[in-house]
Design a protein around this nucleic acid. Sequence first.
DNA 1: CACTTGTCCTGTCATGCCGTCAGCTTACCG
DNA 2: CGGTAAGCTGACGGCATGACAGGACAAGTG
Lengths: 215, 215
Amino acid sequence: MTGQVRTVDGRVAGRRGQATRQKLLDCLSEMLSSSPYRDVKVIDVARKAGTSPATFYQYFPDVEGAVLEIADRMAAESSSLAELTAGRSWVGKAGWQTAQELVDGFLEFWRKNDAILRVVDLGAAEGDKRFAKIRMKILNSVNSPLTDSVADLQAKGKVDKDVNPAAIAGSLVVMLAAAASHQKGFSSWGVKQAELKPHLALLTYLGITGKKPVK
Amino acid sequence: MTGQVRTVDGRVAGRRGQATRQKLLDCLSEMLSSSPYRDVKVIDVARKAGTSPATFYQYFPDVEGAVLEIADRMAAESSSLAELTAGRSWVGKAGWQTAQELVDGFLEFWRKNDAILRVVDLGAAEGDKRFAKIRMKILNSVNSPLTDSVADLQAKGKVDKDVNPAAIAGSLVVMLAAAASHQKGFSSWGVKQAELKPHLALLTYLGITGKKPVK
DNA sequence: CACTTGTCCTGTCATGCCGTCAGCTTACCG
DNA sequence: CGGTAAGCTGACGGCATGACAGGACAAGTG
């Protein structure tokens, strides 16, 4: 699908080369979790991987290039997020359950990938189209089915005709993403994580259906 | 209040020094809008300000230090955001108007300060307490009065007793912040800014009151 | 086993930014 | 006008960057 893995100078990477490349990506991932993006240096990644900076540049044009690759893989995995919403019911108790599971799955995904997601978010916010594209791919895996759900309810007359399903779904998805990446912020408001989840689910349910949930 | 402005080596800055310092801050602000945070170099800021890197280090310990100063000033201005919510009604048509004005004011503030807010967001997400504190100060100027509003409605029996006002208000504020910093993302979902606003207001109103707005 | 081929890694180098210091210039004040 | 403190910069060692050429290594061949 993606073709062969190639080095910067055009050669085809063999088994050993791919292993080195992967190790560099893993070490970069770790560094992103432990130090500010701004301070991540090629030389540190290379040292951590037990190799030299020159090797790094054989596989990636620069740090950003490697980050994009990590982000791309994560985006590929994000498709699993779609199952949290696609084809689920938003009516009655089942609807409330859908909302809860969506929030749970979303926060979990964000928690697992928070370091790289931070960088993707920054890149997208700074206007970098490559990062914006990746961000959209991730958010879309939730946003598309969610938009469909709203449109469905709307077709059935259960949601006002003047709402734009994409705007509602997008706003909710963006809320979940932001809440996930700033969970610590909520604790300074005296809101614990366990307490936050049902409230996010509540807002999600309210936004989608326009009604209070039946718990 | 804040005492005298001092250089890194302890001297008191006079009129000329303060002007230079300010010019450096202004130029840094501009650079943050035009290039990725990761690529902002001291030497570029200095050149843009028509001075030398050594001068920069006379007033700031590093780029981050200067960024914190810019962010601090913005946080001071953010208190004006409180007026968007404090003491406003959330009932009936007046409530709907409150929601709209809140969204409007919030997006406007974010638009004006987006570059620095991006960096603050990143710093906070990376766990830097100084940035987290600044971020909280800004969000609190909206979150506190909003929390009060929910608590008020709750006391009057208009909102369910089992909701945590801080969790609801916090989630909504975070949603607004995220929507503001990724407005471009919505356009790839086919949602224009003018269309986004009323939907954010709708979600806000729904979240605060638990009911559909009377328009 | 020697030889070849193609992959893989690193030593080294020019370049450029970082962060600091000594020392020069400028402004203010008695 | 001389003293003092503020303000600025040239220059420097140190480190990261990014490029290259060449050495190390594995695998296949006669």
